[in-house]
Design a binder for these strands. Structure first.
Length: 775
DNA sequence: GATCGATGATTTTTT
DNA sequence: ATCATCGATC
């Protein structure tokens, strides 16, 4: 035990060893928050608690896995299997366990954002609302807000103020009915229904609340009222609630999170002990002071100031670029310069406010042959063919899943069109039967459909029934998927459907097959329901592997909880950061400032803050101004510079001096760059060597591709796909270590054949499969 | 029922 | 600029 605590500072140790009862740990960025949490769990275990008496909530599945692994490291594997997961995963687990007893459907589906959208689309169409006035996104937002406030549709209708609200409430009701008749829960339901379960069924509540002697919550500042309620219910017997958070990093207000959960914690839980962690172990001094200076501008905060004993480090680099394309080009330079200094690519993270920004950055990196990984965004599970196949599996698991049925009923083509589907669904609804089971009722089908349509539908439903029987008799998920693929002859369909992309799609299918196999191996006999649940609940961050070797591109939100030696924040511009849609309220701007603070505090050693003077929006250039937050970056901590040739000034504000307003210029040329203010460094002279002052090593950076190409291992498209080569040692997240056998295709269709030590030969798409070179 | 071209929205962040 | 959806056509 003493070794457990020996590496902690006194504040951390006090928190870890706190006596029973409610505990609030206010943990600044980089102050060892995760460590305190894991050590606390290990400490409790060493105090004699059984793992089954501990429940912990994390923000992502990845964090859950890491935390479990770290605890296992310090106390041994056999003591480690405590309950840990996201609120959603934990809710799903509890619901699944008690479904039968409560009359809930046992094989309920979990609807993700896409399923939810499709269902809402149908609901909106059924209600015949003006699609201009009532959008899917608007309705979804309203419904989610109600659910997070534990308000049902009837309550929402009663409390509705005004027409829009009232219609949204009606949509809510219709949506909820549709969801239930599909035997599906959406993300919010996973928590809401769990709360209802515990509230309404005292025995179940007692069971969990007495079982869990300690409940711990990470990222507490981003919990919503429902999640808080769940925590209270689960800890209602023992009252040992240990929460860790940072009010300065609350960035999920827009989806119902309430910092107040944290700020009011001590009034909610009597006798709360509070600990503050303010020593930062992550960032060098300049970076930390910039972060402190920025966040100090927020008025609504508990207030803390992080300190460090680390050296100052380099000044933070603040750079102006002409446009987003230039910014992207500069990013490539930065990456190459960092590499030239011996920095692994995996040390570098690129952050942005919106996903849309990633495309340009990604393109620039691809052109420059810099291996990179976009974390989140277009997920593997969101590929169309992958979603199609998952929809088949979902429909097999749950015949009432109308959204999935709609998705696959005519894919491959079975000549079952829109009209037929509408009639089919109406029929199912009318007789309160799962649509997938209608095959057993030829009488109803004959009644609802024409003869030809009924025949085709019957053929499809019969096929479905065969798969269902196979699944019911415990056919392993990989076999089931193989059966589906064979029976629908998906390969032929892909070929016929779109020959140009068939090969690419085929590989996605192969990757899904791999994924299913990996699941089967990892879970040893996990059933279909578990697999589907897992695919529904993956988060953006989960897709980020620990492997080295790729520059990471991710949103600032996704970056929460992570750290990188080098961070490049792009698009530090007003209307982007703070985002235009958040700029009209003080609270909105404060949340955006916290987001900027989160971005800054991800950096350990070097930090770049980039902005562009103009940027395309919907295709056309629009002028942009430096983020107002950049004004809060103290001059003494940073170097401000312009990266490229002289360019027309944006209209008003610039970091380079106040003279801008006068330099509006005439005609086409909008004036030239003004003189630098005394405090800031000049960047480019007007001389034609503007980049020479940029922080880049003098020697031309050598890319790995350039080096390896000499080996002549490469096919002709070596230029496009430099990252993998035969003989190379790689690591895959599920399959472990292996060696590359063959590299085919390029760009998006790049396929790598790998012999894995423990899993044999697999074909992989590095674009989706997390495959990392072992340097 | 499928296909093609025109049209309009899209870019806030996510479990 | 790109994507999804819609309508007209086969």
């Amino acid at each position: 035990m003493s070794e457990l605590l020996s590496d902690l500072n006194s504040a951390q140790r006090a928190a870890v060893t706190a006596a029973d009862g409610p505990v609030l740990v206010i943990a600044g960025a980089g102050s060892g928050k995760t460590r305190v949490l894991t050590t606390r769990i290990a400490y409790l275990l060493e105090q004699g608690l059984s793992p089954s008496q501990i429940l912990a909530f994390t923000f992502t599945n990845k964090a859950a896995r890491q935390m479990q692994a770290r605890v296992a490291d310090s106390v041994g594997d056999e003591r480690a299997p405590f309950w840990i997961g996201t609120f959603h995963a934990t809710g799903a687990r509890i619901l699944r366990t008690h479904a039968d007893a409560l009359g809930l459907p046992r094989d309920y589906a979990v609807y993700d954002a896409d399923d939810q959208k499709r269902l809402l689309k149908r609901v909106l169409a059924d209600l015949q609302l003006d699609p201009r006035q009532f959008t899917i996104a608007g309705a979804r937002q309203a419904i989610s807000a109600w659910k997070n406030a534990d308000t049902d549709a009837d309550q929402a209708l009663t409390a509705a103020v005004g027409y829009i609200d009232a219609v949204h409430a009606k949509i809510y009701r219709a949506y909820q009915e549709a969801l239930r008749s599909c035997r599906a829960f959406d993300f919010d339901d996973l928590i809401l229904e769990t709360v209802h379960l515990l509230e309404q069924h005292a025995p179940v509540r007692e069971q969990y609340a007495s079982r869990f002697h300690h409940v711990l919550v990470d990222e507490f500042q981003d919990t919503n009222p429902l999640q808080l309620l769940l925590v209270r219910l689960l800890s209602s017997v023992h009252g040992n609630v240990f929460v860790v958070g940072d009010d300065d990093q609350a960035i999920y207000g827009w989806r119902g999170a309430r910092v107040e959960n944290m700020l009011e914690f001590e009034t909610l839980f009597r006798g709360t002990q509070i600990f503050r962690l303010e020593q930062n172990y992550r960032s060098l001094g300049n970076i930390l002071d910039v972060a402190n200076a920025v966040i100090a501008r927020n008025l609504r905060r508990k207030g803390k100031s992080l300190w460090t004993t680390a050296e100052r480090g380099d000044p933070v680099q603040v750079e102006e670029h002409l446009d987003a394309e230039d910014e992207a080009a500069r990013l490539v330079e930065i990456v190459q310069a960092e590499q030239a200094r011996g920095r692994p690519r995996g040390d570098i993270a690129v952050l942005y406010r919106t996903n849309a920004q990633s495309r340009l950055l990604e393109e620039a990196l691809r052109r420059a042959q810099v291996p990179h990984q976009v974390v989140g965004n277009v997920q593997f599970y969101e590929r169309r063919e992958v979603r199609d196949l998952l929809a088949y599996l979902k429909l097999i698991a749950n015949p009432a899943d109308e959204v999935s049925l709609q998705r696959v009923v005519n894919r491959p083509r079975r000549k079952i069109g829109e009209t037929t589907v509408v009639r089919l669904l109406a029929c199912a609804r009318e007789h309160a039967l799962p649509v997938g089971d209608l095959g057993a009722r030829p009488d109803l089908l004959a009644e609802a459909l024409g003869q030809a349509a009924a025949r085709r539908v019957t053929a499809f439903l019969d096929q479905l029934a065969v798969w269902r029987r196979a699944a019911a008799s415990q056919m392993p998920v990989p076999d089931l998927l193989a059966a589906v693929l064979h029976d629908i002859d998906y390969e032929t369909f892909l070929q016929a459907d779109e020959p140009e992309t068939a090969a690419f799609r085929q590989e996605n299918v192969a990757e899904l097959v791999n994924d299913v196999h990996a699941f089967a191996e990892a879970s040893s006999g996990g059933d279909l329901g578990q697999y589907l649940e897992q695919t529904a609940l993956v988060s953006d961050q989960d897709a980020m592997t620990n492997g080295e070797g790729a520059v990471r591109l991710l949103t600032m939100h996704t970056a929460k909880g992570l750290e990188f030696p080098v961070v490049v924040v792009t698009g530090c511009e007003d209307n982007l950061l703070p985002h235009a849609s958040c700029s009209d309220t003080a609270a909105g701007v404060e949340e955006e400032r916290r987001l900027f603070y989160v971005a800054i505090t991800r950096a350990r050693q070097r930090l770049y803050l980039l902005y562009a003077c103009r940027r395309r929006r919907f295709g056309a250039y629009e002028d942009s101004l430096p983020s107002r937050f950049l004004q809060d970056v103290p001059d003494r901590l940073c170097e401000r510079r312009a990266g490229r040739d002289a360019w027309p000034q944006p209209v008003a504000r610039s970091l380079f001096g106040a003279a801008d307003l006068e330099s509006t210029g005439a005609g086409g040329a909008r004036g030239r760059r003004p003189e630098r203010s005394p405090g800031s460094r000049p960047a480019a002279d007007k001389a034609p060597a503007p980049r020479s002052r940029l922080p880049r090593a003098a020697a031309a950076p050598r890319t790995p591709a350039a080096t390896r190409a000499a080996g002549d291992q490469w096919a002709e498209d070596v230029v496009q796909t430099p990252a993998y080569y035969p003989g190379q040692h790689v690591v895959h997240a599920s399959f472990g270590a292996g060696q590359v056998v063959r590299v085919e295709g390029s760009g998006a269709t790049l396929t790598v054949t790998v012999d894995f030590a423990e899993h044999g030969r697999k074909h992989l798409l590095p674009r989706f499969a997390p495959l990392h070179p072992v340097d």
